[in-house]
Lab assay of single mutants.
Amino acid sequence: TTLTVNTQTYTFTSEEEAREFARRYGAKTIRKTNGTWEVHG
């Protein structure tokens, strides 16, 4: 199964959650914005 996250942004309140998600789905960018963490595919 392949998950494609081209134009979607996922927002997390903790860096740990964001990094775990990025690691699991191979997202390329993690960015902190206004106190939340954004993961970009």
Rank of each mutant, 00 (worst) to 15 (best):
T11V: 12
T7C: 15
L3N: 14
Y25A: 07
G41W: 15
R31H: 10
R24F: 06
T11W: 10
E17H: 03
A18S: 00
V5G: 13
T13R: 05
G26P: 03
Y10W: 12
F21Q: 02
L3S: 14
L3R: 13
T1I: 10
E16R: 07
T9G: 06
R19Q: 08
A27R: 05
E20T: 02
V5N: 12
T1K: 12
T4I: 13
T4H: 13
R23G: 07
A27K: 05
T11K: 08
K32W: 09
F12L: 00
H40L: 15
T1Q: 12
T2A: 11
F12C: 09
K28M: 12
A22M: 07
A18I: 00
R19L: 13
L3G: 14
A27G: 15
R19C: 15
T9F: 13
G26M: 04
E16V: 07
R31W: 06
G35A: 03
F12V: 00
E38C: 10
T7P: 08
R31V: 12
T4Y: 05
Y10N: 03
Y25V: 14
T7K: 07
Q8P: 11
Y10H: 10
A27Q: 06
I30Q: 03
K28G: 09
T36G: 14
S14W: 01
T33Y: 07
R23C: 15
F21W: 07
Q8S: 09
T13D: 12
R24H: 07
R19Y: 10
T33P: 10
T9C: 15
E20W: 05
E15M: 05
A22F: 05
L3K: 14
K32T: 10
H40M: 15
T7G: 10
T36I: 14
V39L: 02
W37F: 04
Y10A: 05
K28R: 07
V39R: 00
I30G: 01
R23W: 05
R23V: 07
R19I: 12
G26V: 02
N6E: 13
G26I: 02
T2Q: 14
N34T: 03
A18Q: 00
N34P: 02
T4M: 08
T13L: 09
G41C: 15
V39G: 01
F12A: 00
E20Q: 06
T13E: 11
R23M: 08
T33A: 13
N34S: 04
Q8T: 11
F12M: 00
T9P: 09
V39E: 01
R23Y: 06
R19S: 04
T1N: 13
N6R: 03
T33S: 12
G35M: 03
T33N: 12
G41Y: 13
V5P: 13
K32E: 09
R23D: 13
T33D: 13
G35R: 01
K28W: 06
T4G: 14
H40R: 10
E38Q: 06
R19M: 11
T2K: 12
T36S: 07
R23I: 07
G35V: 01
R19G: 03
A18L: 01
T29E: 10
N34K: 04
T29G: 05
E38F: 05
G35F: 03
F21N: 01
T7I: 12
H40Y: 14
H40A: 11
N6D: 13
Y25C: 15
T36K: 11
E20R: 06
R23A: 10
E16K: 08
T29I: 15
Y25W: 09
Y10M: 08
T29C: 15
K32V: 09
T4D: 14
T1A: 12
E15F: 12
Y25F: 10
E38M: 05
R23S: 09
K32L: 13
N34A: 05
E20S: 05
H40G: 10
E16I: 07
S14F: 02
T7F: 12
T11F: 12
W37G: 00
V5H: 14
W37S: 00
E20N: 06
S14I: 03
V5F: 07
I30W: 02
K28H: 15
Y10P: 04
F21K: 01
T29H: 11
W37R: 00
T29W: 11
E38I: 10
Q8W: 12
R31P: 05
E15C: 09
H40P: 07
E16H: 07
W37E: 00
Y25T: 14
T1P: 15
L3M: 13
T13K: 09
T4A: 12
A22T: 01
H40F: 14
I30S: 04
T33K: 10
V5D: 12
T29K: 05
T13W: 08
R24N: 07
R31L: 11
R23Q: 11
R31D: 05
A22I: 03
G26A: 05
K28T: 13
R19K: 09
T29R: 05
Q8F: 09
T11P: 02
F21A: 05
R24V: 08
E15G: 02
T36V: 14
K32Y: 14
T29L: 15
H40N: 09
E38H: 03
T1V: 09
E16L: 07
V39Y: 01
G35K: 03
S14G: 02
R23F: 06
K28E: 11
N6L: 12
R23N: 09
Y25Q: 06
F12H: 00
V5I: 09
T4R: 08
E16Q: 09
F21L: 02
T9S: 08
E38S: 03
A22R: 01
T7R: 05
L3D: 13
T11Q: 07
R24T: 06
T11R: 08
S14L: 03
A27E: 04
R31K: 11
Y25G: 02
S14M: 03
K32R: 08
G26H: 10
T36L: 14
E17Y: 02
T36P: 01
A18N: 00
